[in-house]
Design a protein around this nucleic acid. Structure first.
Lengths: 210, 210
DNA sequence: TATACTCTCGTACGATAGGATAGGTCGCTT
DNA sequence: AAGCGACCTATCCTATCGTACGAGAGTATA
């Protein structure tokens, strides 16, 4: 497993290299960006990661960056730092899901603690996402009919009822249900229900951009 | 349904009455407290409600109050206002689940919007809580054995397996299972699973005090 | 054209679920 | 002592589930 990566966005070279040194000394890898645009230009590094950014940046602010990443579906824990921030700014960032918001000057340990927390959070969510992705892949492999049948199954309908609902014979429903269970690798109905709930919840748990 | 109540905590009489007037003009009921201790001394008003408090209070601060309410299991949306707050303070409050954090001076509309949001949130959570309470009451009405059996059922075990697990005959398991389903008012296994999941999740979704 | 996939339906069989009915033990309360 | 609730077990019966085996029809693709 590669080391965790800390993405650092700041328009001041001094700040970047200072945090860079701090982060490297803590054993993390780092990726430096002079602006939000730079960061958005290319795909983010893979693996466990978090983002440290100044709120006040030229052109595209840290908050704009947060919103843009959310819009792109890039889930990444964000840690804001700022020299001239105010309370409404911090509240807005936190509401949008920021991990922390540190006003300068801060102690080295403060930001390292926050980074450690952010990375731990990212790892936790990554595990959940992997689970969910695995589920989604399996769900995608279902035929439309199989998906339809599963929807009814997860609502607690009997095969007979599903058959009536879809205008099919009960046997056909059983067939679809059986092959769907195999494709989803669900041993029992209970297992299946949990999967379906995870799929539904996962789709809704997207971070709301503010 | 009685009107929503806004609890107002501030040590300055002027501030209290100002917000009180604002809140009343918006059609809400209000409850005024000169200190956090005052509020904690008696049970909170029932119904839909939210709390507006200054962060900086003598003896027990707004953040202390937030923590104390969480510790007591009193879930209530909190809206902080402050004249001399700083960013770390606001971040801490938001991390602990505050709805908003408004620095003075603020426009009347700002706080009214925040209050409306807080009350809407409280109403939403109250509905979920009612559902959960209803579930809990039914679950409490189960005998220990019935609860045990349901635990296994919700893990996807067959009656036969549950019987082996508990050292019972399969028939006995069926009996317990049946009466448990009746008491829980679950028509199908799927319905039951959803209930059990809600119970487990509900117990874990407590707001983490910071 | 041939192959593959999907959807459909049937019969048959074994396993499971769930209820009705009937019986018994144990411990606590009235 | 009697009653009650929790707990345990059994047999009988029915509905449902799950699968195996068999088979036809439509559609897309190589």
């Amino acid at each position: 497993m590669p080391a965790a990566t800390v993405l650092i966005v700041d328009d001041e070279e001094q700040v970047r290299s200072a945090i860079d040194g701090l982060v490297r000394s803590a054993g993390y890898r780092s990726a430096l960006y002079a602006s939000a645009v730079d960061l958005l230009a290319k795909p983010l590094p893979a693996g466990v990661r978090c983002l440290v950014t100044d709120v006040r940046l030229p052109l595209v602010s840290g908050l704009d960056l947060q919103r843009e990443l959310a819009k792109r579906g890039e889930r990444i824990p964000i840690l804001f730092i700022t020299g001239h921030g105010d309370i409404p700014m911090s509240v807005r960032a936190m509401k949008a899901g920021a991990i922390d918001f540190l006003p300068k000057p801060f102690r080295d340990q403060d930001i390292l603690d926050a980074i450690a927390g952010a990375l731990a959070e990212d790892m936790r969510l990554k595990e959940l996402e992997e689970e969910l992705t695995s589920l989604r892949i399996r769900f995608e492999s279902l035929t439309p009919r199989e998906r339809e049948v599963l929807e009814f199954v997860s609502r607690g309908l009997l095969n007979k009822q599903i058959a009536a609902e879809l205008g099919l014979s009960e046997i056909t429903v059983k067939i679809h249900r059986g092959s769907a269970m195999r494709k989803m690798e669900a041993r029992t109905v209970v297992h299946l229900i949990r999967m379906m709930e995870a799929l539904e919840r996962g789709a809704l748990q997207v971070q709301t951009p503010v």
